[in-house]
């Protein structure tokens, strides 16, 4: 073994080991989810868990295949994704605007902060009945419920991020007579960006929860509709499938925000863990 490694030329070895460590670095976090599925498969196989409580991974896969073949799953996915996307865009836009307003000006803080802090204290499923009465059971209600959930963390983190920007930079802006727009965008918003992106990650997690909440009432489309139907027709395989789809979508959106962070926060040299 040792003779085999010593024969290899050193340079390509280090290059390839670097590449392989990059791949293994990306795959490593998936080790524990795969292990959980393995244990699940084993438990089902051995009959430790009844098929009625938790169907085997194979059954869930079969359900995925069937629902994809008849078009149910792709259509539901598309519908749900567009709801989340629309709600998130709306929530982020308003959260950023309100956060900038109350972060930048004391008058703004005085006007919008207290109502938003109160809104934050209300669980959004408590808002659901009101939203249904106000906006009906159609798309606007769903999108607005998601937007409301998204708005809160984006607002809070924009506001807190701006208030954390060092006053030294504002002094600099005073000396050099920067315009308000410049201060708002290049100093406050960019300075608050790490905090805003953290808010965005919280927001997206909430977006999916809001989606489930809104899709499980009076809905005729989306993943939530598939889930409710599966429950009604006692199809635990489809129920589990929907849950897994939600989980994967959550991981996917989190990954997208991380990608965004990597791109936008290149300037940072923070601690990355030992």
């Amino acid at each position: 073994m040792s003779s085999a490694t010593s024969v290899r030329p050193p340079a390509p070895t280090s290059a390839s080991s670097k590449a392989s460590s990059k791949v293994s670095g990306a795959l490593l976090p998936w080790l524990s989810p795969v292990a959980i599925v393995g244990i699940w498969a084993l438990a089902s196989n051995q009959g430790w868990i009844s098929e009625r409580t938790l169907p085997a991974p194979g059954a869930v896969l079969a359900a995925a295949r069937d629902l994809t073949a008849d078009g149910t799953l792709p259509e539901a996915l598309g519908t749900s994704l567009s709801r989340v996307l629309l709600g998130t865009v709306l929530g982020v836009a308003f959260g950023l605007a309100l956060g900038l307003l109350s972060g930048y000006s004391r008058l703004g803080e005085l006007t919008v902060d207290r109502p938003l802090q109160m809104l934050r204290a209300i669980p959004f499923n408590a808002l659901l009945p009101l939203f249904i009465i106000a906006f009906g059971v159609g798309e606007p209600m769903k999108v607005l419920l998601i937007a409301e959930g998204v708005l809160i963390p984006v607002y809070l983190n924009t506001y807190a991020g701006i208030r954390n920007v060092d006053v030294k930079y504002i002094e600099l802006a005073t000396v050099y007579k920067f315009s308000r727009r410049l201060v708002a965008v290049k100093i406050l918003l960019l300075g608050a960006l790490p905090s805003i992106l953290t808010g965005l990650r919280f927001s997206l997690a909430i977006a999916w929860i809001a989606l489930v909440t809104s899709e499980t009432v009076n809905t005729t489309s989306g993943i939530g509709f598939v889930l409710v139907n599966a429950q009604r027709f006692v199809r635990p395989d489809q129920v589990v499938l929907c849950i897994i789809v939600y989980a994967l979508l959550g991981v996917l959106t989190d990954w997208l925000v991380r990608l965004l962070e990597k791109r936008l926060l290149r300037w940072r040299s923070g601690f990355t863990g030992r």
């Binding site: 030294k168 930079y169 002094e171 600099l172 000396v175 290049k186 100093i187 960019l190 300075g191 960006l193 926060l265 300037w267 940072r268």
Partner: peptide, 12 residues
């Protein structure tokens, strides 16, 4: 002004 800390914004 040049301050003791250069006050360069790290994000630019």
């Amino acid at each position: 002004v040049a301050f003791q800390e250069p006050r360069l914004m790290p994000w630019l």
